[in-house]
Simulated assay, not measured.
Amino acid sequence: MRLFAVSAFALATLATPAFAQDSTSTFTGPRAEVVGGWDHVGSEGDGTSGFSYGGALGYDAQVGRAVIGAEAEITGATTEENGVGAGRDLYLGGRIGFVAMPNTLVYAKGGLTNARFDVAGLGSGTTDGYRFGGGVEHDFGRFYGKVEYRYSRYEEVNLNRDQVMAGLGIRF
């Protein structure tokens, strides 16, 4: 958790000079980011909330105002109830979007997810599922910030996961 906070602070500090830029952005190239936000895991209206944190790598290509990309992410979570906790979550997927304003991308995303759930006294297990969602990304030059909602479904264990995440990243 401390590593996430320090990374986010360092990234925000480095991005500060870029906030003044007024050039038209390009959303093309490899990117790396840290993410964190609200995490809710449950089934049929029940569940518990916590904090999710992690990082992602991706690549985007912009053609005109359209953007298409691929991404991979790993997160952890503090979400726990009655001895059952959400562990790490692996995600591999893609996104498609459009440049709504010169420096702002609106996108939808989807892909596959693999989550680990830890049960006190019994150990842990993994389950596969799917994820879809959407978000808004704003470019500050080489750095960017984003906010997104995502929904994950794990049919095998009848669990849903809702997340609202914020991210800070750098485009190479």
Rank of each mutant, 00 (worst) to 15 (best):
A100T: 11
L159I: 03
G55H: 00
R150G: 13
A72G: 15
N158E: 13
G87Y: 09
G97P: 07
G50P: 08
S124V: 10
A70E: 04
Q163R: 14
F117E: 02
T127A: 15
D46E: 10
R116Y: 02
M101P: 00
A115Y: 00
A70G: 15
V99G: 02
T104F: 06
G58L: 05
L90P: 14
G110F: 01
G167F: 11
R88T: 12
S49V: 06
Y154N: 03
Y53D: 06
F140Y: 15
G55M: 03
N158W: 00
S49D: 13
F140N: 11
A70P: 01
I68F: 13
T79C: 07
R153M: 00
G94L: 07
G58E: 04
R161F: 04
G55I: 01
A61D: 06
S52G: 15
D46T: 13
G133M: 11
N82T: 09
S49Q: 10
L112A: 11
D60F: 02
E156K: 09
A72C: 01
A115Q: 12
M165D: 04
L168H: 07
E137S: 09
Y154T: 00
Q62R: 02
V164G: 08
S152K: 02
D139K: 15
V164E: 02
G141H: 10
N114I: 00
G47M: 02
G141T: 14
L92C: 08
A77C: 00
V99T: 12
K109V: 01
Y149A: 11
L122E: 09
A70V: 10
N114K: 12
Y130Q: 00
V136S: 03
G133A: 10
L92D: 12
G111L: 05
V63G: 10
F132D: 03
S152I: 04
N158Q: 09
R116A: 10
G135M: 06
L122K: 10
A56M: 06
Y107T: 07
A77N: 07
Q62H: 02
D139C: 09
Q62Y: 03
Q163W: 00
L122W: 08
E81Q: 14
G123V: 13
D89L: 15
H138E: 13
V63Y: 12
G97E: 08
N160Q: 08
H138W: 11
R153I: 02
G134M: 09
G76C: 00
R150Q: 15
G125R: 13
N103T: 13
Y154M: 03
G141V: 14
I74R: 12
A56C: 03
N158A: 13
K109H: 07
V84M: 07
R88V: 11
G123W: 13
D46L: 14
D128N: 14
T48C: 07
E81M: 10
L105A: 07
A108E: 08
A70F: 10
F51L: 15
L122R: 12
G93T: 06
G55D: 05
I96S: 10
A61F: 05
G125L: 11
I96P: 03
S124C: 10
D60C: 02
